[in-house]
């Protein structure tokens, strides 16, 4: 899909054939722009929220100062206007504030942090499962392959939404039970280490479940691609050589197959992140995603979607997170497509 790489193959295929994948990627202008956009937005999401807070000493995420003053007319403000708060002093909310007087820019950036972390971690989980299943199927072949690929077919036929909803509703109970038990055990035995870990994990229960569940439903494509690639690789001579030399199957898989798979894995990791971020936003829309007071792009978009109505249309609550998420996912998709073209994996 990446235009520059495609252009090269038409104009000078002999020149581009001699380039390595990385060199081809570096020549792809859109991919490099996307990479820059990604790095900048990730840095903004991780660095800017605390910086914004320290600028004027106001806690922009909490909105407590304006909450106390919520009867005043200044609670909502369109972009660019000053927000007057009674106790917190005056500060500029560059992109307006929400119903609780919280700075939209701050919330979008810190929401992006949650969305990107969930996206990356869940994509990593899916990558692990997908690679494991795909490699096993491709390497052992025969009945194992047949069984695993039919399993993938069946899971493809299941509506994905349904599967993740069932998983989430099935897992939330046991996880909070496990956390409670771990806490009780830590209390009983006075294991301070475990206690602090468990206490730290409590606010992130929902996030953990989301990461696991989303990773668990998005591995199907990865498994198919990895299997296909292993089927090609395993017929090549260096694998036969490794077999003849008497290397164990484990070593062949980890030492010889994996290093040849990692461009495929990197490509599909890049392409899975946007899918997962979209899934997370969908779940947040249903009220099953990240829970208040934490926010992700999904929860912000949900709030924004309900803010667009015939009575008062507070469009900036929808447009700001939509632009942020659109830009990030667009950049990820562009980069993923460029990687796929550069390394020629299909």
């Amino acid at each position: 899909m990446s235009s520059a790489a495609a252009a090269m193959t038409t104009t000078g295929s002999s020149a581009s054939d001699s380039l390595t994948g990385w060199e081809r990627l570096k020549l792809d202008r859109m991919a490099m722009i996307s990479l820059a956009v990604l790095v900048i937005s990730a840095m903004a999401c991780f660095v800017a929220p605390p910086v914004l807070n320290s600028l004027d000493g106001a806690n922009r995420g909490a909105g407590a100062t304006s909450l106390r003053n919520s009867t005043s007319a200044a609670t909502y403000s369109p972009p660019g206007s000053l927000v007057q708060t009674a106790q917190g002093g005056t500060y500029t909310a560059w992109l307006g504030t929400d119903a609780n007087g919280r700075d939209v820019l701050y919330r979008v950036l810190s929401g992006g942090r949650v969305s990107l972390v969930v996206g990356l971690c869940a994509a990593a989980v899916s990558l692990f499962i997908g690679t494991l299943i795909g490699m096993t199927a491709g390497f052992y072949g025969g009945k194992v392959d047949h069984f695993l690929m039919r399993l993938v077919d069946v899971l493809y036929a299941n509506p994905r939404v349904l599967f993740v909803l069932i998983l989430i509703s099935a897992l939330s109970g046991p996880l909070s039970l496990a956390i409670n038990q771990a806490r009780a055990a830590a209390d009983a035995h006075n294991w301070l280490m475990l206690k602090s870990w468990v206490d730290g994990a409590i606010p992130y229960q929902r996030t953990l479940i989301l990461i696991f569940c989303l990773g668990f439903i998005e591995w199907l494509t990865m498994a198919r691609i990895v299997r296909g690639q292993v089927l090609v690789l395993k017929e090549q001579q260096f694998i036969s050589a490794a077999r003849v030399l008497g290397q164990s199957q484990w070593k062949i898989m980890t030492r010889h197959l994996l290093p040849n798979l990692w461009t495929v894995i990197l490509t599909y990791l890049t392409l899975t992140v946007p899918v997962v971020v979209l899934d997370e936003s969908f779940l947040s829309f249903l009220g099953l995603g990240i829970e208040e007071p934490a926010s992700s792009w999904g929860t912000l978009l949900k709030e924004g979607a309900s803010a667009v109505n015939p009575l008062v249309s507070r469009w900036w609550l929808l447009v700001t997170p939509a632009v942020a998420m659109g830009v990030a996912l667009l950049a990820l998709n562009f980069l993923g497509d460029a990687l796929r073209d550069a390394f020629d994996v299909h």
């Binding site: 899909m1 924004g304 667009v308 929808l318 659109g326 667009l330 998709n333």
Partner: peptide
């Protein structure tokens, strides 16, 4: 067309829906 298509894939329907409402209905 391809940038538009990528953007359309990158935005969830509950964003495009309210945006359509905002422009064409409101």
């Amino acid at each position: 067309a391809m940038t538009g298509a990528l953007l359309a894939i990158s935005l969830p329907t509950f964003v495009t829906g309210p945006l359509l409402v905002l422009v064409f209905a409101l």
